[in-house]
Design a protein around this nucleic acid. Structure first.
Lengths: 376, 376
DNA sequence: ATGAAAGCGCTAACAA
DNA sequence: TTGTTAGCGCTTTCAT
């Protein structure tokens, strides 16, 4: 039988409430009593039952991570960081994989809601309105999506796309393709907008191809189009797609970077290992995981004790944290980009090969941003 | 305020126990009452509080996954499969990352023990005796480690290593290196034993290099040794190491597979994407995750209701499931292996290039094995 | 500083 | 078939 608070009380000759206090409010108990109780607890191997505790405090000390696809290499570092951060604050984390399915996502959120103090929605696929509705049931932090009035952790892929396009223009490319990601992705929209602006500013033409599935196959499938379109460079929605594109071009006999330069987004581990090594926009996924957990727990701490049980946020007059954090990205220049037809002219934006002087943005240096709405 | 069983009772004009029964023993309640209760529950958005339920039933309907390193690409497919399988049985899963640290592992197991009905230990790093002790506190299933009397899910990497060595011998290699994995890894020991036997049988000499960290760097670091040792082929503990080795050899001007053939183990997604594509022993990680969850929940179901609370297994006379499941592996031949100096002689064990007739072992076809002890 | 008592939301005998 | 009652392990007033 598992040892309960009562066993400890009996062993140390005090009332169970004293034992309880020893753990949840140590300063309220006589130091001598405390050590005695602690000793007995240690002895018996007592661990408070969190379910029982949750029942009365309304705090489970659990959080939930809703992930679009664990097998997508973008997510594991985020999960790892989030889990580690949560644990350091004595929280445990449920991980749930939605398989990129919006309705599975909704179901999961509901199933978990009662068991957690808050949820991290990572690259959610459901509609904004559903998310807003959910946020009334359970504290939420959204990663990679911007919603008015909700705490979000965003990666500045817009900035990244700008750096990427500048890099390509500097190398002498004037015809650039953009391989778009999934419809309705906030990240995708940001990339497109910034890439377009940067291309315009640099006197280059941007051809948007897509939307595409955010996978290797999405990239392979576009290789033929890329070749025919006559572009000399391409920016892909993510690394997986970029790697697929390189593969596809290779199969068509098109050399990367000699004939076409390719840039990805994410800097997944994989990107250092392919041949050629991928030039890419590094997104601070670990920092995002940590930050998101911090924001969630902050929210949790802020809530008045009265508003207990899940769905606490619904209580009248409760101040919500709605900070939106924008994490910086950086361009990592490797071997998949090279000189284009207009090389040597204009200002030398072309970085030298190798791990050149790429923009170094400290991932631990978030920029808080006033939240403004963006549809979907 | 969250809606409780009492709200539903009030709304449908029955006692709370009837509502309770409607959910946990529907057959005991009048169909008409049932639909009414269900309707009210639906209306109010009622969801049973699992913590409260757990408190009395002793079943949390949660399981825990203890993972050595989520960022290691070997694990995500396993996690994904396990989570999906668990959910289909209405279980939620805690994921905890130990960072390959045995003591973190122990701490985590204890922290989680009270909150789960069972734990999956994936490639555990702690000692056998500790695991055995733990298994008395909480139902356990161990993946990638064999212990007497404990349910284990094993991948037959021994068979895989044999296939790999046979393949190399068939290609005409007679001097083969084995890049060992971490000390104390069951997988490592199996690979070494089988590879040695297969080499002996094939008239080849096997040189063991290591132990090495199971990472890309582990492989890079051995490149120089491999070159100097004069072998013409190498089998690595895992794909990451194999990829690192290829990288390292490349840096030394040694061509793979022309001068040295390389084989990995695991068949992580990455391995299809490197150049050259990696020949490797595919381990059925998803099947392992599914199977392990099944075994755990089976155990859970078997336990008599009397033995409630966690640590149920400790009750006297409780029959434990101790089946050990061995999952088949297969050799996937890609581009990192080619003819060796003795090619053309002997029987043509050399498979043709391409996705040839490699051994097809159905991952859904486990072989149950009588458990026999293996230290560490 | 400690004890007594109530009760979190739910299930499980037992009665009716 | 339904209601009554007790209580899972814990925290938290309220007394003392």
């Amino acid at each position: 039988m598992p040892v309960t608070i009562r066993d400890v009380a009996r062993a140390s000759g005090v009332h169970i409430s004293t034992v309880s206090r020893t753990f949840s409010a140590p300063h309220l108990v006589n130091p001598e009593t405390r050590v005695r109780v602690l000793a007995c607890a240690e002895d018996l191997g007592y661990r408070p039952n969190r379910a029982a505790r949750a029942l009365i405090t309304g705090r489970t000390h659990n959080i939930g991570l809703i992930i679009a696809d664990i097998a997508n290499p973008f997510f594991p570092p985020l999960i790892k960081a989030a889990e580690s951060q949560a644990r350091s604050r004595d929280y445990h984390v449920f991980v749930a994989d939605t398989n990129e399915d919006p309705s599975a996502e909704e179901e999961l959120v509901h199933a978990l809601a009662k068991q957690v103090d808050g949820l991290l929605l990572c690259s959610p696929r459901m509609s904004n309105s559903l998310i807003e509705q959910l946020s009334r049931e359970v504290p939420l932090v959204v990663v990679n999506r911007q919603l008015t009035g909700l705490p979000c952790v965003l990666m500045d892929v817009g900035q990244g796309a700008r750096l990427a396009v500048d890099h390509l223009v500097g190398l002498g490319h004037r015809q650039i393709a953009l391989l778009g990601g999934p419809r309705g992705s906030w990240t995708n929209r940001e990339i497109r907008r910034s890439a377009a602006a940067a291309a315009r500013a640099g006197g280059a033409e941007l051809t948007v191809l897509g939307p595409n599935p955010p996978t290797e196959h999405g990239g392979i499938a576009q290789a033929e189009h890329v070749r025919r379109s006559g572009v000399t460079a391409a920016l892909a929605y993510n690394d997986l797609m970029a790697i697929g594109l390189i593969e596809g071009l290779d199969a068509l006999g098109v050399d990367v970077p000699r004939q076409v330069s390719v840039v990805g987004v994410d800097d997944i581990t994989l990107s250092r290992l392919t041949r050629p090594k991928l030039t890419t926009v590094a997104t601070p996924t670990a920092a995002a995981g940590r930050t998101a957990v911090d924001m969630l727990l902050q929210q949790d701490t802020d809530l008045p004790r009265a508003a207990r049980g899940s769905g606490a946020g619904a209580a009248v007059g409760v101040r919500r944290t709605t900070a939106q954090v924008m994490l910086q990205t950086e361009l990592v220049i490797r071997d998949s980009t090279g000189p284009g037809p207009h090389a040597g002219r204009g200002r030398s934006g072309a970085a030298p090969a190798g791990p050149g002087p790429h923009r170094r943005a400290d991932p631990g240096d978030p920029v808080t941003v006033a939240g403004s709405d963006v549809a979907s």
